[in-house]
Simulated scan of single mutants.
Amino acid sequence: MFHPLRVSGIERLTDDSVAVTLAVPPDLHETFRHRPGQHLNVRYTVDGQEIRRSYSICAPATEQPAAPALRVGIRLVDGGAFSTYALKELVVGDAIEAMPPMGRFVLTPRPGQFAAVVGGSGITPVLSIASTLLAREPDASFCLIRSDRTAASTMFLDEVADLKDRYPDRFQLVTALSREEQQAGLPSGRLDRERLTALLPALLPVAETDGWFLCGPLGLVRGAELALHGLGVDRSRIHQEIFHVEDGPDAPAGPRIETPAAGTLTATLDGRSGKWPVQDGESLLETVLRSRADAPYACKGGVCGTCRAFLVSGEVRMDRNFALEPEETDAGYVLACQSHPVTGEVELDFDR
Rank of each mutant, 00 (worst) to 15 (best):
D162I: 01
M1C: 00
G185N: 04
Y85H: 15
S141L: 10
I123L: 15
G332V: 05
L28C: 01
T45Y: 05
P68M: 01
V342F: 10
F322N: 07
A184L: 05
D234C: 14
I242C: 07
F114H: 08
T108Y: 01
A336I: 10
R35T: 00
G344Q: 13
S128Q: 07
G314E: 09
L231D: 06
S291F: 14
E50G: 02
I123G: 15
T21Q: 14
V206S: 09
L220A: 12
D234Q: 15
L28F: 06
V42E: 12
G122D: 12
N41K: 00
S273P: 02
A184T: 12
I257S: 06
G119V: 10
L269V: 06
A69I: 02
I238E: 00
L203A: 10
R43I: 14
A69S: 10
D139C: 09
L144C: 04
S8D: 08
E258V: 15
C304T: 12
T124S: 07
V24F: 06
P68Q: 01
L133C: 05
D349V: 05
Q338L: 07
R71P: 03
G232Q: 00
P138W: 12
V174R: 10
A293N: 05
A151R: 10
P326K: 03
T287G: 15
P26I: 02
L163E: 03
E315L: 09
A86K: 11
L5C: 06
S188F: 12
V312K: 07
D158C: 00
S291E: 13
G232R: 02
